[in-house]
């Protein structure tokens, strides 16, 4: 039997909630440099969602995940998992976690490793036996139950990692780069499992670089860049249904100035000007301005922005913004001369 954790009204609390969560490391021996890896993260992930946590390498995704699971200590700020503080043992009883590039106890057989995890999760022998069989089947490793983990391929390691994360039927599953090392079949199966978790009301929080998969599966995403959350929300809200771009020839500076409030970007290539509108609904207003200034030929291009487009755009915008700020006041790393 699983030991019952403190009971909380599950539906009323967020699966994950952080407030001002920060992590700073000190690097170097003599000239100690402080590096801010995570900066004031305020995040709320409601239950029953699949949440994709994105960002370039070194953005702070794994650090956030380790902070959430109490594996590292925050420099400041706090966090809650399923309504309990992140360092609370009972919270971890209802959470499953798959670390990035795991190798686990290589000397154990798959079923033995899951048995160890079951014991740490305080399951009795009968429950362990039943859960191990069910979970191995879920991840497609039934035939490998008696194979040593040392003999597993990268994809199989990810599967056994997922199996131990799902063994206690957690309310929240946290996965660090779960799609790494999986072939297309493995990815498809994993996606099915994660979507299956959502359909039974569980919350899945995972980091990934495979944006097409994230877009396909997730309800919400968060994008982290250089330790700061630069975008967060439902995919439907973050990715507008359409992007409208007007392409015209030879614009005067005055026209460009008049169009600027309506456009997210205006670019020029030879004689062609591309005016990307902030909202598709502004097409008529922009066309009217163009006609007033004598432009008769207007090409209208409508595109759907993918998560990948959105990701690169937001990262570039943030980097540009930081570049501008950095020239005013460099703050990301401070030096302590000792």
């Amino acid at each position: 039997m699983l030991r019952l954790p403190k009971l909380l009204p599950l539906q009323r609390v967020n699966a994950i909630e952080t407030s001002g969560l920060s992590k700073e490391y000190t690097v170097g021996w003599r000239n100690q440099t402080r590096v801010l890896v995570l900066d004031n993260l305020d995040l709320a992930v409601s239950q029953g969602q699949i949440y994709g946590f994105l960002g370039p390498n070194g953005a702070g995704k794994s650090t956030t995940i380790k902070l959430l699971l109490g594996l590292i200590t925050p420099t400041s700020g706090s966090g809650m998992l399923l309504g309990l503080p992140i360092h609370d043992k009972y919270a971890r009883e209802r959470v499953g976690f798959l670390p990035e590039d795991p190798s686990f106890c290589s000397y154990l057989k798959a079923a033995e490793f899951l048995d160890l995890c079951g014991k740490v999760l305080h399951m009795d022998r009968a429950t362990r036996k039943q859960r191990i069989a069910e979970t191995l089947e879920m991840v497609g490793l039934t035939a490998k139950a008696k194979t040593r983990i040392a003999e597993f391929s990268r994809g199989m390691l990810q599967r056994i990692g997922l199996a131990q994360a799902l063994l206690n039927r957690p309310d929240l599953v946290v996965l660090d780069e779960p799609l790494n090392g999986l072939d297309p079949y493995g990815r498809k199966e994993l996606k099915n499992i994660l979507v299956g978790q959502k359909t039974v009301g569980k919350t899945v929080f995972f980091s990934s670089h495979i944006l097409s998969d994230v877009q396909e599966m997730c309800d919400q995403v968060g994008i982290l860049n250089r330790g700061s959350l630069i975008a967060h929300g439902r995919l439907k809200e973050l990715l507008p249904a359409r992007n409208t771009t007007l392409v015209v020839e030879d614009l005067s500076l005055d026209t460009v100035n008049r169009l600027e409030p309506l456009a997210s970007s205006i670019s020029r290539e030879h004689h062609h000007w591309s005016i990307r509108l902030t909202q598709p609904g502004l097409k008529d207003e922009a066309s009217a301005i163009l006609r007033q200034t004598g432009v008769s030929s207007i090409e209208v291009h409508t595109t759907v922005e993918t998560l990948e487009d959105f990701f690169f755009r937001r990262i570039e915008e943030d980097n540009l913004q930081r570049g501008a700020n950095a020239t005013a006041a460099p703050v990301s790393a401070t030096q302590n001369s000792t």
Binding site: L71, E93, P99, S103, F104, C105, C117
Partner: peptide, 15 residues
């Protein structure tokens, strides 16, 4: 620590 077994175990209710 190297194999990340510690992370897996300590992410469970183990002190």
């Amino acid at each position: 620590l190297r194999e990340k077994t510690v992370m897996t175990l300590l992410s469970k209710p183990l002190g």
